[in-house]
């Protein structure tokens, strides 16, 4: 992975742009019809993956926090379990993705990072679900992990393509 040598002076601006993009992509995800509710493609995670390449570590976690709080404000779920699920899943997967990107610095693309993120986020949520909903929730983990594996690969490929093609990213590197 190519790391930027100098970070933009106003990285808070980049955080809010990527945060806004997260909310926008959630909106798109919400609008496109799905065969079964609750199955998500996870395109709102693309900005998080982008941030791993262009933002310092601390700011990635800020972006994750913004995404969770902002998303809950839009859907009005700030005081429900859904917020707890989303925040803990996102934070743990965020930390795992940062660690794996440090560990395998130039040797991994967005596909690997996305797969790690999807796996850790889903495992966290399954763990929470078994704690809150009861031991039977572990069976639900099977389809969730399988769908997450497929969508995680897809999101990784999509982000790889974005990083290759994007003029915005290229301007960023200058």
């Amino acid at each position: 992975m190519t790391k930027l040598t100098s970070y933009p002076t106003n990285s808070n601006r980049i955080i809010s742009i990527l945060g806004g993009l997260c909310l926008f992509l959630s909106l798109i995800e919400y609008i496109i019809p799905k065969p079964i509710p609750f199955i998500k493609l996870g395109i709102a995670n693309i900005p998080i993956l982008i941030s791993i390449v262009i933002l310092p570590k601390k700011d990635i976690l800020k972006l994750i926090l913004i995404k969770s709080i902002g998303g809950s404000l839009v859907s009005g779920n700030l005081f429900s379990w859904i917020f707890l699920y989303s925040l803990s899943g996102s934070l743990i997967s965020g930390i795992s993705m940062i660690l794996i990107s440090i560990l395998l610095n130039n040797k991994v693309s967005m596909i690997g990072i996305s797969l790690i993120g999807s796996l850790t986020s889903n495992l966290t949520q399954i763990l929470l679900a078994t704690a809150i909903l009861g031991p039977g929730a572990k069976y639900l983990g099977v389809p969730i992990l399988i769908i997450g594996f497929i969508s995680g690969t897809f999101i990784g490929v999509l982000t790889n393509n974005f990083l290759n093609k994007s003029v915005w990213i290229r301007n960023f590197n200058k």
């Binding site: 808070n12 809010s16 806004g20 993009l21 909310l23 913004i66 902002g70």
Partner: peptide, 17 residues
């Protein structure tokens, strides 16, 4: 800071839409 960031985030969200 988080409050400010969220405010800006919603501004950009509006711009995206």
């Amino acid at each position: 800071e988080v409050g400010l960031l969220i405010k800006d985030t919603f501004y950009y969200f509006n711009q995206f839409t």
